[in-house]
Nucleic acid binder design. Sequence first.
DNA 1: AATTAAATTTATACTAAGTCTAAATACTAA
DNA 2: TTAGTATTTAGACTTAGTATAAATTTAATT
Lengths: 130, 130
Amino acid sequence: MSRLNLTTQRKAILDLVQSCEDHPTAAEIMERLRMNGHQFAYGTVYNSLRYLTDAGLIRELKLGETASRYDGRTEDHYHIVCKKCGRVDEVLSAPPAEWIREVAAKTNYDVHHSQVVFEGVCYSCKHPNA
Amino acid sequence: MSRLNLTTQRKAILDLVQSCEDHPTAAEIMERLRMNGHQFAYGTVYNSLRYLTDAGLIRELKLGETASRYDGRTEDHYHIVCKKCGRVDEVLSAPPAEWIREVAAKTNYDVHHSQVVFEGVCYSCKHPNA
DNA sequence: AATTAAATTTATACTAAGTCTAAATACTAA
DNA sequence: TTAGTATTTAGACTTAGTATAAATTTAATT
Ligand SMILES: [Mn+2]
Ligand SMILES: [Mn+2]
Ligand SMILES: [Zn+2]
Ligand SMILES: [Zn+2]
């Protein structure tokens, strides 16, 4: 609840995550920072990722792999993972509100949020030629 | 692809998971086994859970917590987690096929499977009295 | 500007969940 | 039996992430 404090480290990490086309893990983020000439402490990267996530500037994705991934896209959306090559793509269509209402009614929960991870085979893996 | 081999340990773990009303973690399973008079090696519990999961007799749930949970219910279904008390309840209504088709079309994936975790507040947490 | 206080970074120790390994047991099939 | 395979066990190891305490940076106060 305090005002945003973007230090050099946090800004660099935010910029990097926002510039990514993919959804890197903390380890991948550290590697890319190093390639860009930065050298931050291990813990600082984790602290910054948590800080930026809490501030709502990036999102942490838990896709069922061992490590969290990070996403510069903050609007609500979902993901699909290719079980052949591991790539993670965006899913921009939201689950139908009707279904959410049904779930809320049947479970007696106030439903605040849903995390959806699709699994399948991506186009490139499906068509290895071309 | 070899035939099912339910050793004493695997059978005890399968029975336990199937008898659970909830979705215990590996640590909770070990604790409950111990309470039932069993004492299996740490690694055996993990090995057995993997074996039973691979055999399709139980399901491993990755709900975004630090530890996997296990589910004796093997038919396709989803889960909802109370962010107040942590309880995990069943969600038996499936996402509309129409939505899945839309996702497949937009992403160019063959969609094989989806994992959905709802988050919200359960009835008991919403009505602390009563 | 100098001093103090608060926030952040750094290095490193530590934790939690799970896997791996090699020896000991148990089971199967000649 | 005996040999061969599978499983269990204990414990070392790995990976991802958190916690701690000292050092550094930044901000506020005199
Ligand atoms: Mn995304
Ligand atoms: Mn379930
Ligand atoms: Zn692929
Ligand atoms: Zn609750």
